[in-house]
Nucleic acid binder design. Structure first.
Lengths: 398, 398
DNA sequence: GTGTCGGCCGTCTGCCGACAA
DNA sequence: TTGTCGGCAGACGGCCGACAC
């Protein structure tokens, strides 16, 4: 039995902690987002964290940013707490994690005994996600519900009425109630949300391209969430705090905790940027130390589709090297350079991390001596995993 | 001739620096806000900076926040750059300052030769500021212009028409144009802004209690600015960055710059909180080292009124002590405990800094031996002013 | 001198099926 | 199956002077 982070879904609102619907949070976060359970061991990547801050503040990481030589590029931590949150203004979902750096050496074999490998969380059974059209968000009319979605997720209408209609009451992540008149009319017949819809659109400031999510849960409650297409609204107000200071802040925060054996807190916004900078230790160890990866190798990787589904994209590993050899040497963050099969996928990130991909030819457990093996040192030099992967230059740096 | 910071008014917009109207910026910032000139020497208070972050993020400074023993509570710096900015979303004004910590001892006598004592910037001559009423912001009608304000600031109407009217075009800090129909009608006659007003109100999201500013400048241009009453909108989106990390970030940023003789950047939002944490060195030196202050002494202090005017409030010094003896010993930030004469003023801060007040009995230059003199050490122990003022317990800590 | 209201028009919101992709 | 449109009715925006404080 494991302690699930889903049980501690909470949010800050006026300083008060209220319970927040975990199912809805995950639906808004997307099918690939996974929050490690409380108490589990994770690897924290300050480099990835920095990426998220940079993406959120739309600023490049300044070259003159100080590097913290004392701060390891990957920090093994125990996840002491995870809470789910939602921004009051924008409805962005995010998680708050409290991390306790570990100083004792971690046995990788012990880690592998855990069944926790960071599989993505299951999405709700009865739900749908629709990208809003111009007609949906226009003041001229209501919301056109896709037929199969309406019949699966909404309570069935009394079709003896002409036209049939019902009042739907849906709750959002703030536990606000939204009322919608649901009807089935027109020629040809279609499901529509009319009265109440425009209030929702204007209150949430939805525009065409944004998405709406409806969930019918096990308690027969209707939940509603949104997902914005436009990531630009994630812009930080720089009116009080410089981007530089933020970068320094996260580094100093982690370094201070590691040095003093204290805890530190990070915020993870899964939709602000694809930077999963807190990774389950077992997932990390398996990918980095127990999976053979070499240049030219074919792999699959999961991506989220526009309709909130999961799709596999194929690619080839074209190189393995440090993303930032100067500031973050010996990091495992995005060390894998890849090429994607589909030209549409070219816009996807040209660099991924070992644990994000699924090699098509896997040799489980320890690497062999043939091919392009990873060199494995043991025991680890410290409690922090810092074993360098196979690099382009063929050198083992550590 | 001094280099004024007004000459380098700029803003970041999509990464591009554009010129920003300094006169309008100062009108929005308020009559008491003063930006030291580029090249001048200032004192930076990380403690005050921290206060601003705390106020903006509506969070207390956590007790377990690390203190940076290596970071002086007041840092003498050269102001290398000042730029004025305005938030794209909220129209909040703020300044970005680049500070270069000084390691050489600063001669206080030299400083006093400078005429720069941080006097508040002059407000524009032809301007008015009105707090919006419920009728002003309601969709039911337009904006009622105070008569004397309209006659002083707006071009005079052609009263031969019935009713007289004209088209006003005003520019905001983003250099956007706003058109207003200005007319003079009703019984009794009054000045009104009708067509165009509601667009402005909804675009700026103005509510009753917010203020609007109109300026008629020397180039015969009409400028318009806003000031929000509700400080709550300054809330930081915590969806990507923890308040703790921000506090650590600003401390680490300053400490790193001081240690490596590098520069650091701060953002100063004059309306987010009354925390002027970058003070002209001469103003600081004069107040702390050349003005006799003692318990029981009467003083005056400037405050901003609701209508953007300046008013003096009277008070009595009730004590002098460290605001935070644990984390910030020997700081001069808000060391003066005060009582205010008017009960209305009781809500004002119970603690101020030496340079904010104007003692009614001043002995210029060096302190005498009578009364409650400040003890003056010389030379200073370091280049950073850290001389403790007279404390409640009568002990000189340094 | 100015904040709010009732009166009155005009525009826009928002519900409807038609039609086409 | 569903996105967009024309048509239409009612709600609200927005301009006016009347009052009162």
């Amino acid at each position: 039995m494991r302690l699930s982070s889903s049980d501690v879904a909470q949010q800050d609102e006026e300083g008060e902690n209220k319970c927040l619907n975990s199912e809805l949070w995950h639906a808004c976060a997307g099918p690939l987002i996974y929050l490690p359970p409380v108490g589990s061991h994770v690897v924290y990547f300050p480099q990835g964290h920095s990426e998220q801050i940079a993406a959120s503040s739309k600023k490049e990481i300044d070259a003159h940013n100080p590097n913290y030589p004392s701060l390891s590029p990957q920090l093994t931590c125990q996840l002491q707490n995870v809470t789910m949150h939602v921004d009051l203004e924008t409805d962005e979902v995010y998680a708050r994690m409290t991390l306790q750096p570990l100083t004792l050496p971690v046995q990788k074999d012990v880690c592998l005994l855990s069944s926790e490998l960071g599989t993505p969380s299951k999405q709700p059974a009865n739900y749908f996600c629709k990208i809003l059209t111009a007609s949906d968000t226009s003041t001229h009319g209501g919301f056109s519900v896709p037929r199969r979605a309406a019949e699966r997720v909404f309570p069935s209408l009394d079709y003896s009425q002409q036209p049939p209609y019902q009042e739907l009451i849906a709750r959002d992540l703030h536990d606000n109630e939204w009322k919608f008149r649901h009807t089935f009319r027109g020629q040809p017949k279609r499901h529509l949300l009319t009265t109440g819809w425009s209030v929702f659109v204007s209150a949430k400031r939805l525009v065409a391209g944004d998405s709406i999510i409806f969930i019918w849960n096990e308690k027969n409650q209707l939940l509603v969430g949104i997902r914005r297409a436009n990531r630009l609204q994630t812009v930080m107000p720089t009116s009080v705090f410089s981007s530089d200071s933020m970068h320094i802040g996260l580094l100093a925060s982690a370094a201070h905790a590691a040095a003093t054996n204290g805890r530190f807190t990070v915020f993870y916004n899964p939709r602000a940027s694809p930077s999963e900078f807190v990774v389950p230790l077992t997932k990390y160890v398996k990918a980095v130390y127990h999976t053979r990866v070499s240049v030219g190798m074919r792999f699959r990787m999961l991506f989220e589709t526009e309709e909130s589904n999961v799709r596999r994209f194929m690619g080839t590993i074209t190189g393995v090297s440090d993303l930032d050899p100067v500031r973050w040497p010996n990091s495992h963050w995005r060390t894998v350079k890849v090429g994607w099969d589909e030209s549409i996928a070219k816009e996807r990130q040209p660099r991924v991390s070992f644990w994000e991909i699924e090699p098509l030819t896997t040799f489980p457990m320890y690497p062999s001596v043939s091919g392009f093996p990873l060199r494995l040192k043991r025991p680890w030099p410290s409690g922090l995993p810092s074993f360098p992967a196979f690099k382009d230059d063929g050198m083992s740096i550590n």
